[in-house]
Amino acid sequence: MRTLLFLVLYWLRLPIVGLLSILSVAGLFGTLFALYAFPEKTAMVWGIGSLSFLSFAVVYGYDFLLMKLSPLPMVDTL
């Protein structure tokens, strides 16, 4: 069951990680632009920055989950 779950998640990795990575980089540039163009709108800056960081964290967690589920040992100690 573990190997089947790993294979399905690994198969879905490219679209999920690809889209979230694009969102993360676009959010980073959007945050920097919003800081420059709209310094008085702090809610917008924090919202875009939070979205960017959250998408980065999901990508990191997704890859970590794949390493934990891998049929071959990839993570020794954590």
Rank of each mutant, 00 (worst) to 15 (best):
G47E: 02
A26C: 11
T3K: 10
M67Q: 04
Y60T: 12
T31N: 02
S21F: 04
F64H: 14
V25H: 10
I16P: 05
T31P: 01
K41D: 15
F6N: 04
K68R: 12
L54F: 12
G18K: 08
F29G: 11
Y10S: 11
G61E: 09
M74P: 00
F38I: 06
V8A: 15
V45E: 07
A43G: 00
Y10W: 12
I48Q: 02
P39G: 04
I22Q: 03
P71W: 10
F29V: 15
F53K: 10
I16R: 00
K41F: 13
L51S: 09
F56N: 09
S55C: 12
A26V: 10
L23N: 04
S21Q: 03
L9A: 12
V45Q: 09
V75G: 00
A26H: 05
T31H: 03
F38S: 08
S70V: 03
S52R: 02
L78P: 07
G18M: 06
F56L: 14
I22A: 15
L14S: 08
L5E: 11
A34H: 08
L65C: 11
G61W: 11
K41I: 08
A57Q: 08
S52W: 02
T77Y: 05
S24A: 15
I16C: 07
Y60P: 01
L20H: 01
L51A: 15
L72I: 14
L65H: 02
A37S: 05
E40Q: 13
Y62G: 11
G30D: 10
L35K: 13
S50N: 06
G61A: 15
G30H: 10
S24Y: 05
M1V: 13
L20Y: 00
L19Y: 11
D76K: 11
R13W: 06
L51I: 13
L65F: 06
L66R: 02
Y10D: 13
L20C: 00
F33H: 15
L69W: 00
T3M: 00
F56I: 07
G47H: 02
L7N: 15
E40K: 12
I22M: 07
F6W: 14
T31M: 05
V45Y: 03
A34L: 14
T31I: 01
L14W: 14
P71E: 08
W11V: 14
F6H: 15
V8S: 12
G27Y: 04
P15V: 08
Y10T: 14
P71M: 05
R2Q: 03
Y10N: 15
Y60V: 13
Y10Q: 10
G18A: 08
L32N: 02
L78G: 05
S24M: 07
P15L: 06
